[in-house]
Design a protein around this nucleic acid. Sequence first.
DNA 1: ACAGCCGTCTGACGGCTCGTCAGATACTCT
DNA 2: AGAGTATCTGACGAGCCGTCAGACGGCTGT
Lengths: 212, 212
Amino acid sequence: MHEEMLATDGRIIGERAIATRQRLLDATLTLLRRDGVLDVKVVDITREAGAAPATFYQYFADLDAAILALAEAAIDDEAPLVDLLQPAWSTPADAARARAFVDAYATYWGEHYAVLVLRNLRADEGDVDFRSVRSRANLLLVRRMAEMVKLGQTEGRVTTMLDPFAAAAAMMAMLERLLAYQNELSRRGSSKAAQRETLTTILFHTLSGLTT
Amino acid sequence: MHEEMLATDGRIIGERAIATRQRLLDATLTLLRRDGVLDVKVVDITREAGAAPATFYQYFADLDAAILALAEAAIDDEAPLVDLLQPAWSTPADAARARAFVDAYATYWGEHYAVLVLRNLRADEGDVDFRSVRSRANLLLVRRMAEMVKLGQTEGRVTTMLDPFAAAAAMMAMLERLLAYQNELSRRGSSKAAQRETLTTILFHTLSGLTT
DNA sequence: ACAGCCGTCTGACGGCTCGTCAGATACTCT
DNA sequence: AGAGTATCTGACGAGCCGTCAGACGGCTGT
């Protein structure tokens, strides 16, 4: 089942229009990266896409609506990461799988950085649509991580001081924020490799209770 | 030694002007909180402060310059937190001190939330002034945490898999991001108390190698 | 081939914010 | 009171936002 795509006035749009809409989304992403999250202008987007400003508003109520569409698209790239958390880590050798997860998440983050930052800003502000899209993106991972913690607790590996859901959210928070930091960090402190290894170690221990 | 305050044209400003400048900063903070990080307008700030738009530009080259000044001011509230990390945590009973640190950091974050988010955005984008102010705010804490990790490693409590500096940065990242999340999290998963307790446990273990 | 139709796109506009300037206002000192 | 300096402001050009009526162009039926 494939949703019909709609213009802002509600009509179902055809092939040419879908292509235009996509060009606008591509341009939005390009300019988000080039100009930064705070300085994107609709006029620039339409210039980049080779369209008139009015065309943008035919497909998106405002800039946020376009960002929201990009955030929706990003979900597809986050969902597969959950497979790297399956089955649960239960021996020191599984640290390699934790490392693979961190690498995969770093890649995902790198590709969608600008969109995710904006999504988080709007979600933190309380916007319901952005909250919804963030939840749909993260909840799969958070739930799975929480299960891992819970399992570790029943098997006596993980301290029961941890609230499984909160611990999972803390790990997501750490990953997100540290990855945003990493460029500056590598100029001031430790190399990116050391950062990855450290992230892996903390993540692995928190979710499995194990050390390597 | 007390820096003279300057207008954008370089002249040293007097008492009345200092008060106006401060009113503008206060208004900026108010509107950052009310309208959100992405929707603050200079016109609104001057309206709020009861001044003409032109007055704003007499003291700040642009909105960023005002935010930067607010971020500078926030440093004073972050610096004392380093005392809560001294001396290093070395027994399970020190978990109480970790909890105190988390609480204090949460308070600090709550008070400066909007400014810190914007500071991080600009710093992540590569703006040198915002990077500098972020470093000066965080480096005290990060350095101290790194020392704690290093000490724990020499005493055999903490795994040598951790890069001390990276681990410290990871903890800061976790704190910052999870605190931004916490409202939504408490509606979907675990209570704020459980979140605090979980943060404390992870922080305490990562920095000291201990469990409670 | 061509007329008509409908989906798509656009130029042009009012309203707003930005950032600047020259000049008005308020304070200080004699 | 008057001169001089510090501070503030109204008014403006430029640029972006978001909307509208209408232009364009590809398709359909004859």
